[in-house]
Design a protein around this nucleic acid. Sequence first.
DNA 1: ATTATCTATAGATCTATAGATAATGC
DNA 2: ATTATCTATAGATCTATAGATAATGC
Lengths: 204, 204
Amino acid sequence: MKPKDTEAEILKAAEQEFMLRGFDGAKTASIARAAGVTHAMLHYYFRTKEQLFERILTDKMNLMGRSVLTAFGNPGLPLLERLKDGISRHFDFLVENPDLPRFIINEVFSRPERYEIMRKGVSRIIDKLMQNVQQELDSMAAQDEIVPVDVRMLMLDVVSLNIFPFITYPMIKPLLGDIAADRERFFEQRKAENIEVIMRRIKK
Amino acid sequence: MKPKDTEAEILKAAEQEFMLRGFDGAKTASIARAAGVTHAMLHYYFRTKEQLFERILTDKMNLMGRSVLTAFGNPGLPLLERLKDGISRHFDFLVENPDLPRFIINEVFSRPERYEIMRKGVSRIIDKLMQNVQQELDSMAAQDEIVPVDVRMLMLDVVSLNIFPFITYPMIKPLLGDIAADRERFFEQRKAENIEVIMRRIKK
DNA sequence: ATTATCTATAGATCTATAGATAATGC
DNA sequence: ATTATCTATAGATCTATAGATAATGC
């Protein structure tokens, strides 16, 4: 196994282990085993569990932060289409990364300082995006085509609706019966529901 | 300190420690210290960390499960009022228990079997409630006073909107700027927003 | 020469219990 | 007599490193 492979294998295994068990629940020995390398190698490449974790968490936080930007940062569409498209893209991102939000929410909760470091990176661009969408909302509201609304509240509606079903799926599935039985179909329906909710939120 | 006090002190300290750090992050020594008793007492009263945790988790799961029931189980009101009242009560419950959902979501994720045991208890009553609300929704829809809607989707909208801001507050606060600066005021606004969203979701 | 890997183990941390002692309730 | 508490420590688990050996790239 070439050097790059070893490092990559450890990272891959660490990602899985940390996402599944969190920092406290994860064991460096398990990561090494899953990566197919001896335990000592993990420390050779990353020195400490903490540093290995930091690498994973930073990656994941950036991924999560950018997901909103890439989803909604699609200019050239009329506002309502842009929103629908954004919700849909953001939702699809979550289908591909269902465990991401829960992981981040948790680790940020127990290590707020980590969040601060990376926040500044996305914060500025998110602000830009928000301002841009707010302008479009305002101009449409001025023309009486939608109701006036604060973009921050609206976006929080969106991410709440989009993310929540993913972080609670194991809990809600048994409560929802047949509509949640087929996971893929259920999330398809949720995506449509979320778009519907947001459209109704702003339409006259 | 009387016996009952010791047990109660340990439970109180355990609740705090487990809610803050989760099962893996919690240390029995910290719990004992916070409770003001020697470490051995914890094992004298609860034998194992696992059993102490089980006691806390069961309590919290029941609390969470019943919160939806007591919030929406208010008959005698017209449907729309009942929904508004339910959203509001459920939201107020979260204001009093802001860390509860994150805790449960996490521990259920890492121990799905625990959830199964207690689920059966609330499941039946939740089903009843849902069926009841669905009937009212159907009859209002038949009279063309609201749009037709699946109660399960609607309730998922409600809990998504209500719970999400609480589990992500540390993350969203810096992104939202001034509207989130004053925590109490922010949540007051969110409650109003959530009611607005749901009303708009079903109104003609 | 330098980089990567392995074995073996030190050292820290944490849960749990043994065994002695004090407090409590018949 | 029984129940509650304390001190001390066993035993398990986990992170991290030392030191030897093998592989790699000039």
